[in-house]
Design a protein around this nucleic acid. Structure first.
Length: 446
RNA sequence: GUGAGCGUAGCUCAGCUGGUCAGAGCGCGGGACUGUGGCUCCCGAGGUCGCGGGUUCAAAUCCCGUCGCUCACCCCA
């Protein structure tokens, strides 16, 4: 089938792409406010970048990666996430020797996961991600949360819930893991098959956020990881939370919050919107103090998040915060009648564009009526009509679309006049009104 | 990988107790207004009814298969 995109991969058409641009512009602006520079890494990485960091046992690595061999036999993978590549670039370019923390964001390039698509989940999807490497300071954890919150607020989403937890590090988590196993072992019968089986063996922490009712009942009695953190992790988490409180940022402690990648340590968080269906996490992230080391670099702490743009757009839509789909945003539309006029019109069009006026023209040889309709749909504020009458007298009819007022301007002056009227709307209104010759019959559009 | 629902014009869908069933609204093109948009009215273009097979005198309508989409599980942004 040559007429459908691959499963779970979508086109973003012009009408919709403006919404994406609005979100992306906001992201860039906020990142600049917080001192984060943009990083662009390849869409493809050596497979090991992910297997050694995300974790061999995770679902993403085991069954969701697009992995292939190139012609030289190297194993490559379409990146399923954005943090490991950033850490790789950090090492490759010796950025650990530069000023710390190293603060970057990424935006605009896709991630790939081979899963069954559903609402808010796609095989090719886009994330806005922010990473800060090189310091353990809990104030940076707070900054990251603040940045997300700031970003979402700018889009009108101030009220999303922030879930927080700490999952310890390599000093305290192994001991807790055993404690949890000890607790669960006598209750295995009460757990669901998934939890009873591979989760208990490979990653018992995942049982903490299993959604099966019986599992949740068991887990409610389980020892809490938060109560078994080592001194450093406990102190880090305590300080981090106190910063958030000082800053007045609301959050909710969620002791069952466990993230799906092995590289997470200490702070983990999610920003949740329940109106999305099953995929409620709009944003997820946390600290990854062992990640750089796992790639063969020096022990280097880091923290960051990924924010799913499709999910964000979906959330904005559900909340009624999206602008209507818009046209190309042309300011002036040139209407030509007849072959000779058309010649004139193309020159006029070129002049307008070079003067910085977004302009378009009819390419279908349509009637004036149809050309004006096209001008209307394109969102043009002015229509410039060149017909035989105008041609003969060296004039152009300038029609204001909002109310139909129109006058005639000498061809040589049109570009300057149009530019001036578009620049100063009030001036243009009075200017045209005094010389109006058109018949204002429609009401103004909203 | 598992389960459920759905696949009819560009879009949203009606038609589905088998026999004027190939339709509506929106969109698109044209006209009413021989050179003037948004409103109204009129006309028009556009569909192998996802695909393949079966049942039947007859299938968009029933059955089987297949592909695709959607939602959910798993997991995640």
């Amino acid at each position: 089938m040559l007429t459908t995109a691959p499963r779970g991969m979508n086109d973003v058409l012009p009408g919709e792409s403006r919404r994406w641009q609005a979100v992306e512009e906001t992201a860039r602006r906020v990142c600049r406010l917080y001192g984060y520079g943009e990083i662009r890494t390849p869409v493809v990485e050596h497979t090991e970048v992910f297997t050694r960091t995300v974790g061999e046992a995770t679902d993403v690595v085991q069954k969701e990666m697009y992995t292939f061999q190139d012609k030289a036999g190297r194993w490559l993978t379409l990146r399923p996430e954005g943090t490991a590549p950033v850490a790789r670039a950090y090492l490759q370019h010796g950025l650990d020797k530069g000023p710390q923390p190293f603060k970057v964001f990424y935006l605009g390039a896709p991630m790939f996961r081979h899963e069954r698509p559903q609402a808010g989940r796609y095989r090719q999807h886009y994330q806005f991600g922010v990473e800060a490497l090189g310091t353990l300071d809990p104030a940076l954890d707070a900054e990251i949360i603040l940045l997300v919150h700031h970003f979402l607020s700018e889009l009108g989403l101030g009220s999303l819930r922030v879930h927080l937890n700490s999952i310890g590090d390599e000093r305290c988590r192994p001991a807790y893991r055993e404690k949890l196993r000890d607790f669960l072992r006598p209750r295995l019968e009460e757990l669901c098959p998934d939890c009873r089986g591979h989760r208990f063996e490979k990653n018992p922490l995942r049982i903490l956020d299993c959604k099966v009712r019986t599992c949740r009942a068991v887990v409610r009695e389980a020892p809490r990881l938060l109560d078994h953190l080592c001194d450093e992790c406990r102190e880090h988490f305590r300080t981090f939370q106190s910063y958030l409180k000082d800053l007045g940022l609301e959050f909710r402690l969620d002791t069952s919050l466990v993230r799906g990648f092995d590289y997470y340590t200490k702070t983990v968080f999610e920003v949740v919107y329940t109106g999305l269906g099953a995929q409620s996490a709009v944003c997820g992230g946390g600290r990854y103090d062992g990640l750089v080391e796992a790639l063969g670099g020096p022990a280097t702490p880091g923290i960051g998040f990924g924010l799913g743009l499709e999910r964000l757009l979906l959330t904005l839509e559900r909340q009624g915060l999206l602008a209507a789909e818009a046209g190309a945003g042309v300011e002036a539309y040139v209407c030509a009648l007849g072959a000779l006029a058309r010649r004139q019109a193309l020159g006029l069009l070129d002049g307008l564009r070079r003067a910085g006026v977004a302009a378009d023209v009819d390419y279908l040889g349509r009637s004036l009526k149809a050309q004006l309709r096209a001008a209307d749909r394109a969102g043009a504020r002015l229509a410039l009509i060149v017909g035989e009458d105008e041609l003969a007298r060296g004039l152009v009819t300038v029609r204001r679309m909002a109310d139909g007022a129109q006058d005639q301007v000498a061809l040589a002056q049109v570009v300057a006049t149009v530019a001036r009227r578009l620049a100063g709307q009030a001036d243009a209104a009075s200017e045209v009104a005094t010389r109006a010759s058109g018949s204002p019959r429609g009401e103004e559009k909203p």
